[in-house]
Structures are given as structure tokens and as C-alpha cells.
Design a protein around this nucleic acid. Structure first.
Length: 528
RNA sequence: CGCGGGGUGGAGCAGGGGUAGCUCGUGAGGCUCAUAACCUCAAGGUCGGAGGUUCGAUUCCUUCCCCCGCAACCA
């Protein structure tokens, strides 16, 4: 049976979402929507959530006036903000996991016991630099010269007993796994796999997975030592499994098909996580896909530079779908992109307003003008051979829209960007087609058959384009769908077989005759 | 010699041994169905530098220069 399980990272709740978070969400949501169309809704699971433990949160809670022991109330308020943001961006996840959920805690503790029993966890001693005022640990290189890189005050050498996870003993096994041709897609894009293999060449140190409660208590207690809580990754990564367990869906959906994430946390997902899973005795995810970053003015987005962009603000200003379209279409998944409000507006005006919005508008106007707003029934040919040729050419391009969606998204590993670009190229062809065909001339000549063919072709293109754009711009696609007189909701109306069909299927017209179109407001009014 | 990615017309990118391509911008023209939208044509590049392989390299090899990121008990 075909199933699809996609995850985003769980976000640390110490800041509000920026454009990078929004990107991961939008891509994951678009993919989930596409797979729901082809595999049916019940066979797709899209997970997102929040990472809520750790020192930074403990501090932030204290700062916000929450007494020790009341951290949960603090994170609750932040989490609501994340959920609201995703709602505005049209993100339809199947589940929202929080690391403070009881099921998650229990799952983490169960696995800790299992891994401990296996002998992969031991009590050791951490030895390194610590900055007391910042309450932060630093490595030798970070604290070069004995100075805290943050506050520039002197650091001290401290030793602390902690539990460690024996990552080092799995390095060879992981390397073998990564090199196995059967796992060709385990890390994508392909060039990232080399990077991961590179990480393994350095000595893989055992991972410190605990914090003494005396110093930090906001976390999941180690089941085998009350004086410690779990530290970060051994808590966070397990969310991908505990979320399924919370829904009794583990057997159906594990292993994950794609863990989608940004390249900065590639190491955790393609080294730590697979090794944890090996030790835990669970299957490894099929793909860890590391996408790139959005840069602003050539630089990485960072709080310290103050160049962060608020996706919600952009969404309110230009519309969710315009933002979603821009994010998905502008860069190939895996590459870095340059974000600027100007380029967003440019994409909006050119691709959305001038190309697709205008195509719908001008087509529907002509259908109203020439056929009283009803899609014409047509024969395959008219008396003008040149016209027949143009028509055949456009229809051949249109026939590839849905097959290419499948090709790029399923076969070419989630390249939804190329699927969208292809659909838009057919929109552009359709605009040229109107110009070349000049239905207004046929109208003067009285060649009604030719106009019928032209309109039927345009409606066909628009219908297929609406379906192709649906995963990325659900609201807009449905708006197109309604204006075309085809119904209310593409997800409900479109036949699954059609999405799986080949171009042969589309050699016949699939836009029914006699449909009353309902021209509405422009999809995307131009921005001046 | 730490590792990875990249340097292609004004901008952002694609491509890949044999007339260098796309989008935007610029200039000229066309059309009227349309959201001053759409369509056509033109200008604009010795594909980071230097060597080499080849009948021929922007594409392969060597080397150098420059930009970006990673180098984890920060998420």
C-alpha cells in the first residue's frame, strides 16, 4: 500500500517563526497535499510541532515571570503563536507534537531504557569550558584564549558527571548504510550525502545526553537516574516516532518517507538520528532532505543581524498563496535562495497577476462573450489547418502537466518547484496561443468552430493548471476551480486516477462541455 | 593543503565537448479578449584567472583567485 509520512523539524519555542520556518512548512504542506491527492488523505501523515525543553526555555520562562515549575504555562502561550502562524499560512498538518506531551515523554523514556539495557548509554564525565554568567558550555575551539565568545569574560574549566550515548561504536555501521546503493536517497540532495560521509571521517564523539537537575531541570527525567534530565537531541528527535505512537499510527507510517529540514540540522538528522534508531532497534527513515536557506542581502538570516523577515506580515500584505508560490517556485529544493520583498512583488505581478490570473480572466471573458458563459462542445478540427496545428501543439503541452507533477514530485524526489514551473510554462504558451489564434478575427470571419476549439483548449489548460497549482496555492486553485464552474474543492472533486494518468489520457478533452463558468474578481490584482 | 557549495549578458539563475539558454530589466513594434495586462523583434556575455587534454572546451583535467556555509553540550 502506498503511504506517505513527512515531517518538519520541531521548532524551538524561544522566538517567533521567520521566513525560514515558513519555507519548511510550506514545502512540507505542499508535498503533503499532493500526496493526499494521489494516495488519499488517510494514507498521508504530515507532522510538525515544537521543541520545548532546555536551558534557554527555562531562562525565557523565568524572564517572562513564570516561577520555577511553571514553565509549561509559559510554553503553552508561545505554542499557540506557532499554531496560529501555521494556520495563517494554510498549513494543514495531521498532527502537532509537543515535547511536553505525556506520550512523548513516555516514548523517550521507554527508548532510553531500551538503549541503556543494550549497553549504549554510560555514565561519564564532561570536561570542558563553562561560562558562569552565561551558564553556557563551550568547546576548546569556541572558548579560544579562555574567553567566552558571547560575553567575552573568562571561562572556567569544569568537570561534570553526565550520561553519554555510544555514538562512536556505530560509525562504521552508519557509513556502510550510507554507501549502500539501496539507500541511494537516504540523504538528499545527493551532494549532502558526501558531506555526511565527511562528518564520519572525523572522530565521532559520544553524545552527551543528560543535564544534572541541579543545573537544569526543565526536561524529561532519565528513567534510570532521578538526578538528571535528557538533553536536547535524544528528546527532540524521538518526536518523529512518539507522534505516531500518540495516534496509534506507528505501524502504518514508520519509517518516515521524508524528514524535511534545513541544512543546518543535517548532522543531527543524518548522523545522530540514524544511529539512535539503530540502537533503538527501529527502521531508518527513507529520506532526510536538507533544503537550503533564504538569504537576505546575501547573508544568512540571523537575529543578531536583525534581518529576519516575518512571514505572517508578508502573508497579510500579499496573500498567503502568493507567498507560498514564491517560496516554492523560486528555488529548487535543496538550494539557497535570496529573499527580498521586491522579488516577491515581481513574482506576484509577473507570474500570478499577468500570466495565470490574466489568462483566466481573458478566457472567461471570451467564453461569456462568444458562448454565453458555457463551455462549448467541439469537434477536433476546424476549417483552418494552421489553427488545428496550434491547437494540437498546445494540447500536447497541457497533456504533460499532471504527468510531470508526478515525475518531478514522486520520481525526481520532491522537486515540486519544477512541477510548478512546467505548469506555468503552459500558461505562458496559452497566452501566446490566444495571440496567435486571435479568436476575435475568427469572430469577424464567422468561423465559430475555430473559436469553440480555442476556448475548449484554454479551459482545458486552466483546469489542469488549477490542479497542478493546488498543492502550493490551495485557496487560489479552488478559486480558479469555482470560476471555471467545476466545483468547490479540488481535493474532493478531482479524480485520483487522473493524477496518476499518463499523457495519453489527456489526448482527449477532459473539460466537460456545457459547463457554466462564473467569472469573478481577478485572482491577483496587480500591485503597483 | 580541514570539509562542502558556488563564480555564465545590468540582476537572478539553467545548461553542458562542436551556432551559449531562461526569467526580470532595457529599446522598438503589434494586438484588443484581458488585471496599462498580452504577443513579436532587437541590443547586451571571449561562461572567475592561468595552463593542459582534444580537430574543437564555457562544458573534461591541473592549478590559482574570490564569495558563501559547516567544523555541535547553540536550535
Amino acid at each position: 500500500m502506498d503511504k506517505f509520512y513527512i515531517t518538519t523539524p520541531i521548532y524551538y519555542v524561544n522566538a517567533k517563526p521567520h521566513i525560514g520556518h515558513a519555507y519548511t512548512q510550506v514545502v512540507a504542506d505542499s508535498l503533503a497535499r499532493y500526496f493526499r491527492l494521489i494516495y488519499r488523505k488517510e494514507n498521508v501523515f504530515f507532522l510538525t510541532g515544537t521543541d520545548e525543553h532546555g536551558e534557554k526555555i527555562e531562562e525565557a520562562a523565568a524572564k517572562a515571570g513564570f516561577a520555577k515549575g511553571h514553565e509549561k504555562e509559559f510554553v503553552d502561550s508561545i505554542v499557540d503563536g506557532f499554531k496560529a502562524a501555521w494556520k495563517i499560512l494554510g498549513i494543514e498538518h495531521d498532527y502537532f507534537i509537543r515535547t511536553t506531551d505525556p506520550v512523548h515523554k513516555k516514548t523517550v523514556q521507554d527508548y532510553l531504557n531500551k538503549v541503556k539495557e543494550k549497553g549504549d548509554i554510560y555514565l561519564g564525565e564532561y570536561d570542558g569550558y563553562f561560562c558562569k554568567p552565561c551558564e553556557t558550555f563551550w568547546t576548546d575551539t569556541q572558548a579560544e584564549g579562555g574567553i567566552c565568545p558571547d560575553c567575552k569574560r573568562p571561562v572556567e574549566r569544569i568537570k561534570e558527571k553526565n550520561y553519554f550515548f555510544k555514538m562512536s561504536s556505530y560509525a562504521a555501521k552508519l557509513e556502510e548504510y550510507l554507501n549502500d546503493p539501496r539507500n541511494a536517497d537516504c540523504v538528499l540532495p545527493g551532494f549532502r550525502k558526501n558531506e555526511v560521509l565527511g562528518y564520519l571521517k572525523d572522530d565521532l564523539r559520544d553524545l552527551c545526553i543528560s543535564r544534572p537537575k541541579s543545573r537544569m531541570s526543565w526536561g524529561i527525567e532519565l528513567p534510570f537516574d532521578k538526578d538528571y534530565v535528557v538533553y536536547v537531541w535524544f528528546d527532540a528527535l524521538i518526536n518523529y516516532i512518539s507522534a505516531l505512537k500518540a495516534n496509534n499510527m506507528f505501524d502504518k507510517f514508520w519509517p518516515a518517507d521524508v524528514h524535511l529540514l534545513a541544512k543546518d540540522i543535517l548532522r543531527h538528522h543524518s548522523v545522530y538520528w540514524p544511529i539512535m534508531l539503530m540502537s533503538m532497534g527501529e527502521k531508518l527513515p527513507k529520506t532526510v532532505f536538507a533544503h537550503g536557506w533564504w538569504k537576505i542581502g546575501g547573508e544568512k538570516i540571523s537575529k543578531s543581524k536583525g534581518n529576519s523577515v516575518d512571514p505572517i506580515e508578508l502573508s497579510n500584505k500579499y496573500g498567503v498563496d502568493a507567498l507560498r508560490y514564491f517560496l516554492v517556485k523560486t528555488v529548487e529544493l535543496g538550494m539557497d535562495g535570496v529573499f527580498s520583498e521586491d522579488s516577491l512583488v515581481l513574482t506576484y505581478n509577473t507570474n500570478l497577476a499577468n500570466d495565470v490570473g490574466n489568462l483566466l480572466n481573458r478566457t472567461l471573458t471570451m467564453v461569456e462573450k462568444y458562448f454565453e458563459g458555457a463551455s462549448p462542445a467541439t469537434s477536433d478540427k476546424c476549417a483552418d489547418d494552421a489553427q488545428n496545428e496550434r491547437s494540437a501543439k498546445l494540447r500536447a503541452e497541457a497533456a504533460m502537466i499532471l504527468p510531470y507533477c508526478r515525475k518531478y514530485i514522486v520520481e525526481k524526489n520532491y522537486q515540486i518547484c519544477n512541477a510548478v514551473i512546467y505548469a506555468m510554462s503552459v500558461v505562458s504558451s496559452a497566452n501566446k496561443y490566444i495571440e496567435a489564434s486571435a479568436p476575435w478575427k475568427y469572430s469577424k470571419e464567422g468561423n465559430i468552430e475555430a473559436i469553440k476549439i480555442i476556448m475548449a483548449d484554454l479551459l482545458e489548460v486552466l483546469r489542469l493548471v488549477a490542479i497542478a497549482l493546488y498543492p502550493v496555492m490551495p485557496a487560489t486553485a479552488n478559486k480558479m476551480w469555482r470560476q471555471l464552474g467545476l466545483g468547490e474543492d479540488i481535493a474532493k472533486d478531482v479524480k485520483r486516477e487522473e493524477l496518476l494518468a499518463d499523457e495519453q489520457y489527456f489526448s482527449k478533452r477532459t473539460f466537460p462541455a456545457g459547463i457554466k463558468v462564473a467569472k469573478g474578481d481577478p485572482l491577483f490584482p496587480r500591485i503597483q
